[in-house]
């Protein structure tokens, strides 16, 4: 079990950075409002950051057990396909997760 002091400090670090990102820009509001660069980044950053996070989480699972690559890709196809079709955030996440849990659990049970 991890050291509680480490866990609490880690949580506080993440919380403090998040709060700073939410609060500090209000103090710098005037220059930010007209910044072309901030608008440029604001429009383009999220798609890349989210994609990198998705790759990161897939890699974490597959690096641990390469056989989970198949189920993960199938589940990802279900999530993306459903989302393009129905555009319902919770439905896409839920359906993909169910497909993945069923396939991965069967895979583990068979070995």
């Amino acid at each position: 079990m991890a050291d509680p002091r480490y866990l609490l400090t880690g949580i506080l670090v993440a919380g403090a950075v998040t709060w700073a990102l939410r609060a500090v820009p209000f103090a710098l509001l005037a220059p930010l409002r007209d910044s072309v660069l901030v608008t440029y980044l604001g429009e383009r950053m999220p798609v890349g950051i989210m994609l990198i996070l998705a790759v990161y989480t897939v890699h974490g699972v597959v690096a641990e057990d390469w056989r989970s690559l198949g189920p993960t890709c199938l589940a990802l196809a279900v999530t993306v396909g459903l989302h393009l079709w129905r555009r319902n955030l919770l439905l896409s996440i839920f359906a993909g997760t169910v497909v993945n849990v069923v396939l991965q659990s069967l895979l583990v049970a068979r070995t």
Partner: peptide, 23 residues
Amino acid sequence: WVVGLEFAVTALFAVLTIEAYRV
């Protein structure tokens, strides 16, 4: 023996990628 729940995170980021792409 129920494994693979962490896929919810991957699914969340995949869906957020699509939403961000729409912007």
